[in-house]
């Protein structure tokens, strides 16, 4: 997406989100807040997948790790600033894991679908650990009673306060990732994804650059996970497993890979559809999400947001 149109879309989106609390009730506001957290998670995957072309099928591992670490740290009695420490520990933990995974895979020459398969295995392992290590993770039932966000005397647990916290963090992170994507970092990544050997022959350490991008992406996913548990008050193995790893890929694919904003829109829309459909038949959802995924891959590989571009192209062709 070109610079001005991205910034316009960003500004309009932010304005809408800022005005929304004036006419939306508090239940719907919290539903949207949670959807936006998953939107942040989708943007984190898009920063890696969209720029490098390498699909991570285990991004829920980093979301879940951030969530579990946040839960464990913020529930520790008598520590100062539990929310802040929890967030920082979650982000650092996920970053370290991503650094280790990235180091062994990227420096070992693993790319493309092989990377996807290894990360898929990672999400299965992580879910198994979350279920089996019950003394720490609470097993199948997970952990409940996680305290809401508090920074010193600043209480961000109210519906409106927590909503605006999420919107502010989402906007800041999106701007940061966008600035990275359009600048030197993003161009070198595009070059590496175009022709890695050529980039290396020009002096770029592709494996290091990919690993660092993966760490940034994973840390952002962990931020989303940590925020989510502080808002929801509970953490369970479904926040680290394969189903969430698949869903986030669908959100990015629906919204449009490589656009950063698109995946946030995708996450909100798909979750809204999930609620509507699940309300009359809960077992229908996995079938529908699968079909939607296949249709998007075949009909709209650039994502749902690309419909506008396609219609414009059709009109231009018609006018010519």
């Amino acid at each position: 997406m070109r610079d001005p149109s991205w910034l316009i879309a960003f500004a309009i989106g932010l304005l809408l989100l800022a005005l929304l609390p004036t006419w939306v009730d508090s239940y719907n506001l919290t539903v949207l807040r949670d959807a936006l957290i998953f939107g942040l998670f989708a943007a984190s995957l898009d920063f890696f997948w969209g720029r490098t072309g390498i699909l991570c099928f285990g991004h829920s591992v980093f979301f879940g790790l951030g969530a579990y670490i946040m839960a464990l740290v913020s529930m520790t009695p008598d520590i100062p600033l539990p929310s802040l420490l929890g967030l920082l520990a979650g982000i650092t933990g996920a970053g370290l894991l991503a650094g280790a995974v990235g180091y062994f895979l990227f420096f070992g020459g693993v790319r493309g679908s092989y990377f996807t398969i290894v990360t898929l295995a990672l999400s299965v392992i992580a879910q198994q650990v979350a279920v089996s290590w019950s003394s720490v993770t609470g097993g199948d039932t997970g952990l409940i009673g996680i305290p809401p966000l508090m920074f010193g005397g600043l209480d961000l647990s109210g519906d409106v306060a927590s909503y605006f916290t999420v919107v502010a963090l989402l906007a800041t992170v999106l701007l940061g990732l966008w600035a990275l994507s359009r600048g030197r970092w993003g161009r070198i990544l595009t070059a590496i994804s175009d022709n890695e050997m050529r980039a290396a022959a020009l002096g770029h350490n592709a494996a290091l650059r990919l690993t660092m991008t993966f760490v940034i992406s994973a840390s952002t996913a962990a931020l989303a996970g940590a925020l989510y548990v502080a808002m929801a008050g509970l953490v369970a193995p479904d926040l680290i497993g394969l189903l969430l790893a698949t869903e986030v890929i669908v959100w990015v694919a629906v919204g449009g890979r490589g656009t950063l904003i698109g995946p946030v829109v995708g996450a909100v829309l798909v979750q809204r559809a999930q609620q509507e459909i699940s309300s009359f038949n809960p077992s229908l959802w996995p079938l529908i999400i699968g079909c939607v995924f296949v249709l998007i891959v075949f009909l709209l590989p650039e994502g749902v947001l690309s419909i506008g571009t396609r219609i414009r192209a059709l009109f231009r062709r018609g006018a010519a």
Binding site: R187, D194, M197, A199, A201, L202, G203, H204
Partner: peptide, 27 residues
Amino acid sequence: IARKFQIPSIFSSLTVVENLQVARWGS
């Protein structure tokens, strides 16, 4: 040491000037 490959290998998603920038940033 710089090298030009036998088959033109440039970064097709980047513009001409961006291709040159990426080359410059590596050194």
